[in-house]
Write a protein that binds this DNA or RNA. Structure first.
Lengths: 241, 241
DNA sequence: CGCCGACTTGAAGTCGCTCAAGAGCGGTGG
DNA sequence: CCACCGCTCTTGAGCGACTTCAAGTCGGCG
């Protein structure tokens, strides 16, 4: 089995986030720090992608609106993450601060100039693009074939694997229920109900709106249903019919 | 309104696929052509990603297996497309030929060597990564908030926008119903039923297993429900509560 | 012709959604 | 300090879209 130690918590997931960003940070370093109030937008879907941003503090959500009132959250970005790395001409999302954020911005031109010029930034940039890609793919699998419980557990495991989101057994969840719902392709009611069910089964317990006490990381991982923990090989190299 | 001309067909979508691949093709050009039989695998999920592939002819499906029997098709790749561009260490998918394919392969090492060396290949590679990213994001939105009909219409519009998939009004659909279902996050029955409904409403008519006569591209686009046609602005720059 | 796999169609079941009401929490002001 | 309000979150009941299970049909190939 996998991670059944006392504090399975510490290695919830092999850190797959933001590995290359320290190097990329150098691109942003000279830029002034901007403060974004909770709920405020950083950029708008459809606008020219003239800048890239780096989250220094806080959490940012990237979303799109389709049809009337249907919002999809593409991703959450945390301290260290770069926003807009994979864009071509226009922003394909609106970015908003989930809570108060500090960010830096660089122009796309100077960013690509740095990428072209610096031998060590380029691979970090490519690495970032690949990781972003992998993350969206995982999310796609989640949306494609997982039920509400698996989605929520995956989300929590993922969140817990980020540095600085937990104090001992208590996971800080900066986003509200609606954000989680729109990220997981569920409704707010289903998110709420599922959390309640997980509490009844001694997996996690909500403590206020923005904290989750994690009772059993083992159960969480088990309930998150495959993929993105690629440690325990099942049905590997098995073609379907 | 958008594209209501006689042959809306010709501009179904601003070609967003495989724009940079001609340049990337040079990397593969020296490699021998391999023939893959329909259904045969090209690489396996979990294996070391030692090679990249370019599809020269035919269609390839990329999939993952999660849990027991749940298959998710990540993407389809067509002539000109590169497989494995965004991988880091291991294949995150199994690639199989949908129909008989011709492919070329290069080692990851020599690929990255070329990327590092050639000034004109690097931007093409980055461009490819970004486009791949955008495509998965669209797919994520589809899986997150679209119903069966919208999914199918999006899929058909997308397919029709690829070069060489249609002869006049008849769209060639190389993949079978199960492939489509696993790509759209539906069951084979729902796909079948939805096609039948679209036929009843004079949108598309199935002609055999692998051909779709498109009656009205207008309706298709309209039914595909937002995003990926970003021409008609609605609820743009409108924050949700 | 008969068989097999892929596809279609039908009927029942289920998970998550919708609509609606109630509970908890934080802030403001009397 | 408590009353009140607004907002977020929770809980409940009914419904609907898609799934599941089970036949039935189509079409290609020996």
């Amino acid at each position: 089995m996998l991670m059944q130690g006392k504090n399975a918590f510490t290695n919830a997931q092999p850190t797959k986030h933001a590995v290359a960003t320290p190097i990329l940070s150098s691109v942003f370093h000279a830029c002034p720090l901007e403060t974004i109030a909770a709920g405020e937008a950083i950029c708008w879907e459809g606008d020219d992608a003239t800048h890239l941003f780096q989250v220094v503090e806080g959490v940012v959500r990237l979303h799109r609106i389709i049809g009337e009132g249907r919002r999809v959250i593409i991703a959450f970005h945390f301290a260290g993450d770069v926003i807009g790395a994979s864009l071509l001409e226009t922003f394909s999302f609106t970015a908003e601060a989930v809570n108060e954020c500090k960010i830096r911005r660089v122009s796309r031109r100077s960013f690509h100039h740095d990428v072209a010029r610096c031998e060590n930034i380029r691979p970090a940039y490519i690495d970032l693009l690949c990781r972003e890609n992998a993350a969206i793919n995982d999310q796609m699998v989640l949306l494609s074939k997982k039920n509400a419980e698996e989605r929520l557990c995956s989300f929590i495991v993922n969140l817990a694997s980020r540095p600085g989101t937990r104090r001992q057994n208590v996971l800080r969840v900066p986003m509200n229920r609606q954000d989680i719902a729109d990220y997981l392709g569920l409704t707010i009611e289903t998110v709420s109900r599922t959390i309640t069910k997980l509490a009844a089964r001694d997996v996690v317990v909500a403590e206020g709106r923005h904290d989750l006490k994690i009772i059993s990381m083992d159960k969480l991982v088990r309930l998150s249903g495959g993929t993105d923990d690629f440690s325990d090989k099942t049905c590997h190299r098995v073609s379907l019919h």
